[in-house]
Every structure is written in structure tokens, then in C-alpha cells.
Simulated scan of single mutants.
Amino acid sequence: MISVMIVDDQRPARMGFALMVAKDRELRVIGQAENGQAAIDMLASLSLVNKPLPDVMLMDVRMPVMDGIDATAAIKQQYPNIKILMLTTYDQDDYAFGALGAGASGFLLKDVHTADLCRAIHSVYEGDAILTPRITGEVIKRGIPKVNATAEQGELRERFATLGRRELEVASLVSEGLTNAEIAERLSIQPDSVKKTVSRILAKLDARERVNIAVLWYKAGMNSL
């Protein structure tokens, strides 16, 4: 069973997502919170009595008291194994970009269908498809200012220069939001091979999450080369 916590300041939204998650027999909701601080308090309470923590959190971006970005940063620092999916809409893309740096594993649109929501939770849990192709590219592009080559960009390009040809190919496809299975099909290799390649890329780039490959790719201006 994959345990899920839902964090949203709108009770109807929390109930809706809970009903969607309940459609999948391999998923179960173990908690709901109305804002980021309430979520952090709930995690602390679970830890205090040695109860299991959620594997995946669905986190709204905009909330009172503590928003999703600040909550994500705090949670990932204290509980790095928890995967966090941000709940967003198109008009919040610029704001949501900050969640990538905070450690979020990706994004889901709030109008996501039940099957896609459950699939995304499974994928994030397995460390696979944590990018949402419909919006991730635009989120990253909007969130990174258009600037000329900088020292930071040069340093990042040097890090990408340490990747082999296949690793660069995979990094490029990850930045486009493709899943391991989609990358495997595109490159005519096995999904396990893609997974191992992604792990090597993360190690060489000194990145924590798969989504950071995409962030660093755009920051380095690799998409313009």
C-alpha cells in the first residue's frame, strides 16, 4: 500500500482528491491538512508515536498560514524520503516554479482525472514519472529569467559536460517530461537501463530529485545549444 496525505485549504478539494485516491486499492489516505503548517504538525505527531509517515503528499501551492512551497522545503529537509506532488493551475505556474527548488517531485493540475492522479502517485512513489509534460516545461521556462551566459550557467554546463552521450540524451528527454518507459521506447532500450542512467545523471549533477535534472538543464541553457 502507498500511503498518501492531502494538503489543501479547501475542504471540498481535499474530499474530492481523497475520493479519487480511494478508487485505487493500492493507495490509501492516512491524513489531510488544511495548510502547510498543519501538515508539518501532523507529520511530527505521527513521528512522535512511531506511526508510518505518508509516502506521497499532494500539496496545494497557495494556502494561508504556510503555503505549499515553504511547507515543501521544510518537509523535504526533515523527511527527505517523502515525495511531494504540487497541485497547481495554469495561472499559478510562475509561483509554482519555486516548489522545484524546494524539493517537490513534480506537478499535477487540479483538474487531473482520477486515473491520471493515481498513476502519478504510483510513478512518483517509484521514482519514475515525476514531471507533468503538459506544464512542467512552461513552469521551468517561466521561472528562469532569460539572461546571457553567466558564471552559474557556465558551471552548470561543465557539470553536464561530465555526462556521456547516452546520459545527455536521457537528461534531455527527462527535461521534456518523458517517463522512463517513454524514454526507453524513444531510445529503443530497456526501462531498467533508463532508470540506472537517471541515477547516474543525478549523482554526476549532484541533484536530489529527477525534476532537478530538468531545472538544471534549463538553467544551463542546454535547450538552446
Rank of each mutant, 00 (worst) to 15 (best):
G103L: 02
T197I: 03
L156D: 06
T150R: 11
G177C: 00
A184N: 03
N212V: 08
G221R: 07
L48H: 13
E176N: 05
Y79C: 10
L131M: 07
L100Q: 02
K195A: 04
I140L: 04
A96C: 02
C118P: 13
Q153H: 06
M20N: 03
T197D: 04
I135D: 03
I130V: 14
S105N: 03
M57V: 12
E167I: 05
K76I: 14
F160A: 10
I75N: 03
C118H: 07
V211T: 02
K51F: 04
R142L: 11
M20K: 05
D8H: 11
A96F: 01
K51H: 10
Q77R: 09
K146S: 11
G103K: 01
S224D: 13
K146C: 05
S188N: 03
M59Q: 01
G143A: 02
A181E: 12
V215Q: 08
R210H: 01
A161N: 08
E126I: 10
K196R: 14
N81F: 08
P145Y: 02
T88P: 15
R142T: 12
L216G: 11
A171R: 06
G164D: 06
G101L: 03
V112T: 13
A99M: 02
T150P: 13
A203F: 11
V194M: 01
Q37Y: 11
I2L: 08
S188R: 00
E176I: 12
A44W: 07
D93W: 05
Q10M: 13
L46P: 11
L225W: 12
K195E: 13
T72P: 15
S193P: 15
T72G: 07
A99Y: 00
M222S: 08
L131Y: 09
P80D: 00
N223I: 12
I82K: 00
G221W: 10
D116N: 14
A22D: 14
R208C: 13
L53T: 09
S172C: 10
R208I: 14
K195M: 13
A151D: 04
R62S: 09
E167Y: 05
L187T: 08
G36L: 05
P52E: 00
T136S: 01
T89D: 01
M42R: 04
S224A: 14
V124L: 02
L27R: 09
R28L: 15
T89F: 04
V56Q: 03
F17I: 09
V174I: 06
D60A: 04
